[in-house]
Write a protein that binds this DNA or RNA. Structure first.
Lengths: 233, 233
DNA sequence: AACGGTATGATTTTCGAAAATATGGTCTCT
DNA sequence: AGAGACCATATTTTCGAAAATCATACCGTT
């Protein structure tokens, strides 16, 4: 399997291209490169200090992930956002995440339980220390990602995990998009706690129900608070 | 090579990189580039008549699709095959294809019905003309792909269709792997006919059941007739 | 013989120049 | 004015040389 090829996320500094891919992905997800924004080589070259071809390789990889839009002979741009795309990403996430939660609850061993519990614990600690808006805190972002990753980590399918990871990234971009307009975060801490408990007590039906609600309510929130951005494209 | 010089420059897509990506994908799926085989630039350069960086871009794209394995600093190779990977691809295909069939049956309009019927008709015509082993006939391959594509085309999610297409490609490589060892093709024609009828008559439960059986029996066939190749890795 | 270091050749990775293509403006003709 | 042709500029895409890295064989020491 080529898992490491699909997500070179953690491996810094091996090749420049992989590093640039990683940094570009982060900036696109965080919307510091705005949706639809053209990605011109002169600009990228200055910003990332790499040559044409290296940048091109990174952009090609991100295009395959759906974060970049390649317009042949007319360069690249950050993938645009839309209500339709948000709906598709949300639906696909529910379909896959629900299945993976079931499999993880079915197959998870002691190490899986420990991973779920400890990643949630870290997430809650960070939320206690920084009670302000969490999505702007990179530490919270990482912990949040790791908790959800831990939940499905025992599913046994690297293939589906890779697909899930791509969809998670695309969804996180939408969360960032709405973060600046949302008045106050809803009680995610309680939701995460409930999901953890359902998973650990092997209550698959409940866990599935909670995860689906979690994903859909996040998506609804985005549509509510960033709706004006989704139509403007 | 003289062939690449004669070949029109824009067979698929306008850029050379996109063209190479396409040709490489075809060769990997058809196993004319064997699983696990190292992809050295000297060889590829001669074979495809493109430069290092163009080839690199193509290989990076295919790595994101799971057909190529990128080993940082040590080049690329065709993604290896294994029983585990076959199981994962099969499971993921069932999960997604079943959902997409349901949605297509729910939402498909007249054009969808026409597409399903006509792609199946073409497939059957080809099978009549060439009664020998179909997987070696590129015409059959294309028609087969288009029939299955038509079945899910009305699902309404470009996101899920893209994921489905990747999984279909990965599965087709396994089918090719076993094609040389399978004594005689089973009656796929009948299966396709039944699936079409279930879909057109909007019998979602039946269509889903037939599709799942279709996918799994193909996978079982591969495991049976190409098992020795899967363990050898 | 076993081990570790190192020189050497093979291969990948990166770079900026050069070619190919798109974009935008100007001119001409109807 | 509007449409089309044409040129100049901006931008992307491709190329092969050069740098970086890996694999291997060799050598000396223990």
């Amino acid at each position: 399997m080529s898992e490491s090829a699909i997500r070179p996320r953690k491996e810094f500094g091996k090749t420049i291209a992989a590093d640039i891919t990683h940094r570009l992905r982060e900036e696109i997800i965080a919307c510091s490169l705005a949706p639809g924004e053209p990605l011109r080589f002169d600009v990228l070259r200055e910003r990332f200090g790499a040559s044409f071809t290296t940048l091109r390789e990174a952009l090609t990889a991100l295009a395959a992930e759906g974060l970049v839009d390649a317009q042949e002979q007319r360069g690249f741009r950050v993938a645009p956002v839309s209500r339709q795309d948000l709906v598709e990403v949300t639906d696909a996430r529910v379909l896959i995440e629900v299945e993976l939660i079931r499999r993880s609850i079915e197959r998870g061993d002691d190490d899986w339980e420990i991973a779920v519990i400890s990643t949630l614990h870290r997430l809650k600690r960070i939320e206690q220390r920084h009670p302000e808006h969490p999505l702007r805190d990179p530490e919270w972002k990482i912990a949040h990602r790791q908790f959800h990753q831990a939940l499905v980590s025992a599913c046994g399918s690297a293939t589906l995990l890779a697909i899930r990871a791509e969809l998670f990234d695309r969804a996180e971009r939408y969360r960032h998009l709405s973060a600046n307009f949302r008045p106050r975060p809803r009680d995610k801490a309680g939701e995460h706690q409930a999901i953890m408990q359902a998973a650990i007590s092997r209550n698959a039906d409940l866990a599935v129900q909670l995860i689906e609600a979690h994903i859909r309510s996040t998506s609804d929130n985005v549509a509510t608070y960033a709706g004006h951005l989704l139509d403007a494209e």
